[in-house]
Structures are given as structure tokens and as C-alpha cells.
Amino acid sequence: MPVLTVDDIEVGYANNTIIDGLSVTIPEKKITTILGPNGCGKSTLLKSVARVLKIERGAVLLDGQSMKKLPTKEIAKKMAILPQSAEAPSGLTIFDLVSYGRFPHQRGFGSLKKEDLQAIHWAIDVTGLSELKERPIEALSGGQRQRVWIAMALAQDTEILILDEPTTYLDMAHQLDILLLLKKLNEEEGKTIVMVLHDLNHASRFSHYMIAMKDGAIVTEGAPETVMTCGNLQQVFNIQATLAACPFSQNPICLSYQLTKETECLQQTAAHS
């Protein structure tokens, strides 16, 4: 049974419908990336799955059950969400913030039990924050803060991890750092990861499954080789891309691109040949 299925949903803000009749199945224990131009509805899709936005029609199914019918705390035990612009108030330590990830597993006023402490320390360790765990959040760099939020989501101990642009505003090294961490979590912990990324090459390199969106609908979906083609990129982003193979993953990457629409697609397979 698929872990996460979006079934013919309609979502929008006020009177403005963004997504109408979208269905998609997220593969289990894989990394899935949603991409598309600004305003294509990818964040809207993620927010509907995260139950931040109300779905007008259709349903999001978690383990085959409509999320509308599940208690939100039960959902939070299976699915953790990292919003796009999470900002912690000052005066909290890393440990404090990460410990809130245990909320769905706690009852009442929430004293930390042994398994809570275990999950928190594991999350801090696996995100490489052990050295910093006594520091207040405001003393951390952007990349470290993003790790703290990921640690909080990990402390939630869920099968599914949803991240809205986890690498935005980070420099190149820190972007890679976060993606490698997610790859490790997928490989070693079997997490199902769904995220929105703007960097096509990162998406192709780290994803098993890609979903390309435009105007609130899915244009194409599948493995990076099938999604990252000149024709698809032309259709989704209106760009004329020159593709190559990633030396690390062998998946297609975009070497460079321009906006002209007429020129022939030049597919380079330099790394392969």
C-alpha cells in the first residue's frame, strides 16, 4: 500500500483556485522532489499534503486513510513537516527546539520520557549538532539552523519527511550538506522524503522520483532520466537546456540554459561517451 497518495484534490486561497484535480502517488522509502517555476503550485501542493491548507475537494491518503479522518496528532506521528521559512524565537537552545518534535508522542503537559530523550539525542547526533546542542539558536549559522529544524522533524520519528525548499538561502556547500544528510536519512533510516527544490541539478542528483509541475498541474513525473529531458524542461520552465550527466549520480543535469524557444535541443552526453 502506498504511504502517501494525493487523490484528485482541489486547493486554493480564498476564491483563487491554484490546484484543480491533481493526483499523485509518492513512492515509499524514496526521495521525491517536486519542481516547477514560481507560482506553479508546488508549495501549495506540499501545504495541502501538510494539512496547512484546506482541501476543497478530493483527499490526501496516508497509509490508505483519508487524512481528514485521522487525528492530527496521529498524522504527526507518521509525517513530519519542515516549512519554508521556519524561524525560531530567540532564547531557545537546540535541545529545547528539537524536544518539541516529541509533541505528537507526548500526553498532557509533556515531561520527557526516556524514549523521548533517546529520540532527541539521536536526532541531534545524526544531524551533526551534538557539539552545538547547548547553544542558543540565534548563535547558529543559516545552515546549522536548517539542521536544527530537520533534527526537530527527525525527533518526531516519522516515516515521512516533507520539506519545503530546505536549501533555499543557503550557500552551495551548505546546500549540499543538507541534501547529503537527507540522502543518508533515506538510505540508513528508510525515510520517505518529499521536498520542493529550485535547483534542478540537486533535484536530479538526489531524487529517485521527480514531479514537474506547471500551472497547478503535473506535467510529468518519474525517474530523473525521464523527467530531466530537454523537452520537459522546455515545457515546464520555458528554457532551452543543455544537458549532461552528473559525474556523481549519472543522472541528467543541466549544464547551462537560455530562454530562446526555437533552437534545437542539444543533448550532450559527454560524461557517458
Binding site: 501545504k47 496547512v52 516549512p83 524561524e87 505528537p104 522533524a153
Partner: peptide, 15 residues
């Protein structure tokens, strides 16, 4: 406290 992290975070945590 969870709401002070932002509403989306609070919802994600099952509040």
C-alpha cells in the same frame, strides 16, 4: 510556544 514557532510548524507537530 509551538505557535510561536509559526503556525505551519505547530500544525506539522500535530497541534
Amino acid at each position: 510556544t509551538m505557535l510561536s514557532f509559526g503556525e505551519e510548524v505547530a500544525i506539522g507537530l500535530g497541534q
